[in-house]
Design a protein around this nucleic acid. Structure first.
Lengths: 288, 288
DNA sequence: GCATCAAGTCCATATTGTGGACATATAGGA
DNA sequence: TCCTATATGTCCACAATATGGACTTGATGC
């Protein structure tokens, strides 16, 4: 059981790790909620343990349980903390205008994603007016970096070494859940994206669902997130790829400018990121 | 110092409780950050324990530590989870227009607060154009219900029994930190607010800093939050109180309408709130 | 009305967290 | 520059805490 527990590192406060893992899992299914069986299956925790952790999260209002269907959802406190965290770095706010413009311009569905470790998380979806939409990606969904246009764009925007490392770490997940997204299958698309400045996902996740995406960075050069536009393949011919790709790059630059302005003001609030490390496997990073 | 620990129940996953307590504390100081000494002093935890919990929170990216000044801030993951939680109930989004209108109309500073247990938390501040501003309330600040105009409005909007219960729970905190906000001192203002439909804080927290506030509810009748307008006393004479009070009530109704619409769509997503005890049986927390 | 499956709970065990004491980094003063 | 004061970070023996198998309770369906 519990194969996930890494051999060493991460000493101390293990229940907190597990609880926050649950929180993340519930976040991934924020709209539909998750029931206990799924939580137990996905985490490998025993039912009592999962339940105890969930009770703790509910005590803090980070999680709510629907009294009717017994599913677990993110709670109000999670929202409140998110709003407070937004004071430091509110990507949604910085990108909202761009997403709306792109949705109007294209008529298709526009996404905002952020990088989280070796994964990409979809933060927001803005739908255009065109009636046929592709539903491969939903808010909250998490895909390995490289799976999906925005995700692919972020991967391509990383330094070559980090790119390889991320791909290595995700090797099994990629082959397993996404047959058309093996590291080998992705390689040419990554290269193209790096050259072109925007990524193309030609239906690799869901047939007929194509998308273009572009990544943007913080002033320190780190990849901050990506915007992408998805449509059915018939609306994503070569000419339209170019058109939307150009639009993406334009908005990407606007977003980067906005980020820069935001960071210019509060001299102290420097997004204390900058974690450059190799990380053998799992959460193996620890201070020295 | 730590008065926050609830009296009974809460068996199991204590480290999670503590860790989430830390998260909340850091959220309260989201803009300036908190250093370890303050954390230790405020929570009563030992330094090693606090540090271990913080490491766990940092592992999950819920908290970041500024490499330079060693202060702890809310992390990116907290923001991401907040955005995901916003799918269920995005108060900021539902109230943004109203706050902007009120700030423009009044020229003063407009606040959005939410209730959290016996406290009110300030979620957002929208500044008007008038150059003299009152800085009694900042985003993230938490006051006992009754302290401040929005907070007072929420308290007044509660059923009498709950009102008394909340006041009782906060009795010591009220007298201690806010000399002009003892339960007795608040009583008349609460009654007036309940009758009038909006609350007035005549400089009870900070002399010369007056404010009016109105609470709004979810369709199920629960108090969801409050909006308030703060200004220096010279800009808050009786006539202007009436004017701003009317404006608040107008926006309050708009907000409630918006909330209603939001809830009308997703039939299932019923904001499973209500810490209404009982829940059927549950031999869990019956130590009364 | 009985069978099936999921949710929730209990309690003896041992794994996990705890904090006093020590080590190290940073700031300020002379 | 050196030295003190203050704050941050870490170690390890001890004991408090979390763990999960087995059980109870509730819901769904045939």
């Amino acid at each position: 059981m519990n194969v996930d527990t890494p051999p060493v590192e991460s000493i101390g406060a293990q229940s907190v790790d597990r609880a926050l893992g649950l929180l993340s899992l519930i976040g991934r299914n924020a709209s539909e909620g998750v029931n206990l069986s799924v939580i137990v299956a996905d985490t490998g925790l025993s039912r009592p343990t999962a339940r105890r952790l969930l009770l703790a999260l509910m005590r803090a209002r980070m999680v709510e349980q629907d009294a009717k269907n017994r599913r677990y959802f993110l709670g109000q406190e999670t929202y409140v903390l998110g709003v407070l965290a937004a004071q430091r770095f509110d990507l949604m706010d910085l990108t909202r205008d761009s997403l709306l413009r792109l949705a109007e311009l294209s008529g298709d569905t526009v996404f905002l994603s952020v990088r989280r470790d070796a994964y990409s998380v979809c933060l927001h979806k803005e739908e255009g007016t065109f009636p046929i939409r592709t539903n491969a990606l939903q808010v909250g969904h998490r895909h390995p970096l490289g799976v999906g246009a925005g995700s692919l764009a972020m991967l391509a925007a990383l330094p070559a070494a980090e790119r390889a490392e991320v791909l290595g770490r995700n090797a099994d997940v990629l082959g397993d859940g996404f047959p058309d997204c093996t590291p080998e299958a992705l390689a040419p698309h990554i290269d193209e994206a790096a050259v072109r400045g925007y990524a193309l996902n030609p239906g690799l996740v869901l047939t007929n669902s194509w998308a273009v995406g572009a990544a943007f960075r913080t002033p320190d050069g780190n990849v901050a997130g990506a915007i992408s536009i998805a449509a059915i393949d018939s609306r994503m011919g070569p000419d339209r790829q170019l058109e939307l790709g150009a639009a993406l790059r334009l908005e990407m630059e606007k977003i980067e400018k906005r980020i820069e302005q935001t960071f210019a003001l509060p001299a102290s609030a420097g997004l204390a990121q900058g974690r450059r490390r190799k990380t053998g496997k799992g959460p193996s990073d620890n201070e020295k």
